[in-house]
Structures are given as structure tokens and as C-alpha cells.
């Protein structure tokens, strides 16, 4: 990836001043000793150098992959990524148990897309009921993703925040136009917040300032800089993440939050993972293509500084986990 000239200059400066500032350490999930019911909690962030630059600083926590679990039957998912989950499509509880028990997931992202008025239009009470049963039978920490901006978002996320009181879940997402209710709910019930802004350094910092103006602690915020899949504007996100990280490491407290990237939802909607072989024979196997697309997107974002990745396909997740193992090795 080509670096713009200004980044190269910043980069050299950082090299000489490394160790000055670090990314916040964010802990997701509360165990019983911390007032929750999770079997363990997960920490991300904490590094004081650029991603995987073990030679110039310390990186105490590895990036973590969250498995995406939709609350309703994901009919819009393409066959490649539905394939591994055919047994429990439409049964999010069994789905979550399976990825935790059999695939070794340590973090799941419950996607409450069914609450969207233009989809199943599920009520906040239905979302809460599902959340309660997952909390009861799945012991890992949780990301709760609301139905998206709109009036439904606040109602659903507030109800879920209350139902999961004390569990220290990560609520997604607060946006500049509508952040107060979500932040207030996270503050009241002891959760964390994703601050989402559209691929822009300044807008990202502005939302972080707005959230901290509500006296919400900075170490309970995670940045979603928004991304597209590979070939769909990924390079913009890459350089924006790089710039945010460089500014954070040079001491800007309003940029020192870890990153989350919703990789799965972006990758699995692009044309290249959907078009069948008959139509584009030179593109090769559709199944492999999709998995590779998710892997490439995720790995690029890891290099830009991603701390949390929300992903879909088990094979892609396995490869990216191995990649992280390799990248976390020192020397």
C-alpha cells in the first residue's frame, strides 16, 4: 500500500519518539468477580507502537475476532457464507453455542438486524428475550449491534443495555447525529460504546470529544472508522486508521481508542464474492474467492491497526487467527 508523503514524515517522527503514548486498554465482558456472568473477559489495545512493531514498543494484547451471529434468518447472506451454518440459520442461540463450543469463538457479535422496520420489525422486547437467553447459555463476552441509525436503534439498544446490566458488553454504534441515548445507556448499565464515523480523521475525533463531554470514560470507547471490503474503498479506511493511530501515539488523548472493523458485513455483499463461476470463469471458484476476500480485507485492516474484527466465515476466521499468531511473534 502506498503511503502518502505526509504519513511518511509522521512515521519517521514516531519512530524516534516511540513509547511516549499508548492506546487505551479496553476490557470487554465482566466475570463474576467483576459483577458479571462471563467466564472470562477480553482486553484489547494497550500498545504503544504501530501495529506489530514489536521492535519499538510493547503490544500487550492481540487483536480479537468476533463471530457475527444474526438474530434472524440471514436470507441476504450468499450461499458460500451460509453453507457452514446451514444447521442453525434462524436459530441464533444454537448458532452462538456452536461457534463457542466447537469453533472456539472467544467473542461474539449479536447483530439485531431483525429489529429493522424494513425487515422482520422485531420489537425491543423480542431482542431482549434473545439476548437474555444467549447471556444464559453462552459464556463469552458480547458485542451487541443495534438495527442501525434511526429511531429503532435507541429503543433496542437501551432495552438490551438494561437487560445485560453489569456484563460490560460493547454497544454498536453511536454516531454524531445520535449518540447521547446510547452513551447514557452504556454509562447507566456499565457497558462500552462503539463510536462510528464515516472514514474521516476529524469527524472521528469530534465524536470522541462529544462522547467525553458527556463524562463517559475514554477507556470504554472503541472507534469504528467504517470500511468497505477489499476493492471498495478499503484504502481510504487504511490511511485514515493509520493517521488516527499516528496521532494517538503522538499523544492525542481523543484518538487513543482501539479500533473495531465490521469486516464480514462489508465483504459478503460485494459483487466478487457473489458472481457464480459460469458467469466469470476466470475468477475461479466462488467459494474460495469469498473466503479469500474476507481474509485479505481483515489482514489489511490488521496492519492498519484493527483491534477487533467482526467476521463471518469460519475458514476465513481460522486463517486470520493463524495470521495474528504469526504477527504477534516477536523477533
Amino acid at each position: 500500500m502506498l503511503l502518502p508523503a505526509t504519513d511518511v514524515i509522521y512515521y519517521t517522527t514516531i519512530m524516534n519518539n516511540s513509547g511516549a503514548s499508548a492506546i487505551n486498554t479496553v476490557r470487554i465482558g465482566n466475570t463474576s468477580s467483576e459483577g458479571g456472568t462471563r467466564a472470562f473477559s477480553i482486553e484489547v489495545g494497550g500498545g504503544n507502537c504501530l501495529p506489530f512493531h514489536h521492535f519499538e514498543g510493547t503490544i500487550p494484547h492481540r487483536p480479537v475476532i468476533a463471530w457475527e451471529i444474526p438474530d434472524v434468518r440471514p436470507d441476504d447472506w450468499c450461499d458460500t457464507v451460509k453453507g457452514p451454518y446451514l444447521d442453525f440459520l434462524g436459530d441464533p442461540l444454537r448458532w452462538a453455542r456452536c461457534v463457542v463450543d466447537e469453533k472456539g469463538a472467544r467473542l461474539i457479535c449479536l447483530d439485531l438486524r431483525g429489529a429493522r422496520p424494513d425487515r422482520e420489525n422485531r420489537s425491543a422486547a423480542q431482542s431482549v428475550e434473545l439476548l437474555r437467553s444467549i447471556l444464559k447459555s453462552v459464556p463469552v463476552p458480547l458485542i451487541i449491534r443495534g438495527p442501525g441509525p434511526g429511531e429503532r436503534q435507541n429503543g433496542v439498544l437501551t432495552a438490551c443495555a438494561e437487560a445485560a446490566q453489569g456484563e460490560r458488553c460493547l454497544l454498536a454504534s453511536a454516531v454524531a447525529e445520535e449518540y447521547k441515548t446510547i452513551v447514557a445507556a452504556a454509562a447507566a448499565y456499565g457497558h462500552l460504546v462503539v463510536a462510528e464515523t464515516p472514514i474521516d480523521v476529524n469527524l472521528c475525533k469530534q465524536l470522541n470529544i462529544l462522547i467525553s463531554d458527556l463524562h463517559f470514560p475514554a477507556d470504554r470507547v472503541v472507534i469504528d472508522p467504517l470500511t468497505g471490503g477489499l476493492g471498495y474503498g478499503l484504502e481510504y479506511t487504511y490511511s485514515v486508521m493509520e493517521r488516527i493511530r499516528l496521532q494517538a501515539l503522538s499523544g492525542d488523548g481523543m484518538m487513543q481508542m482501539p479500533f473495531i472493523n465490521f469486516v464480514g458485513p462489508e465483504v459478503w455483499k460485494v459483487k466478487e464474492v457473489k458472481v457464480p463461476e459460469q458467469k466469470e470463469p476466470q475468477w475461479g471458484s466462488r467459494a474460495e474467492r469469498g473466503v479469500l476476500w474476507e481474509i485479505s480485507t481483515a489482514v489489511a485492516l490488521l496492519h492498519a491497526g484493527a483491534d477487533l474484527l467482526v467476521m463471518r466465515h469460519p475458514e476465513a476466521i481460522a486463517v486470520v487467527e493463524r495470521t495474528i499468531d504469526g504477527l504477534m511473534k516477536k523477533g
Binding site: 474521516d200 480523521v201 476529524n202 469527524l203 475525533k205 469530534q206 470529544i209
Partner: peptide
């Protein structure tokens, strides 16, 4: 343009 976005904030980003 970048200065402009940074200035869409009171008083400044």
C-alpha cells in the same frame, strides 16, 4: 477541505 471538516466543530477539533 480537511481544514473545513476540522472546523465544523465549536471552536475547533
Amino acid at each position: 477541505m480537511e481544514e473545513y471538516v476540522a472546523s465544523l466543530f465549536i471552536p475547533h477539533t
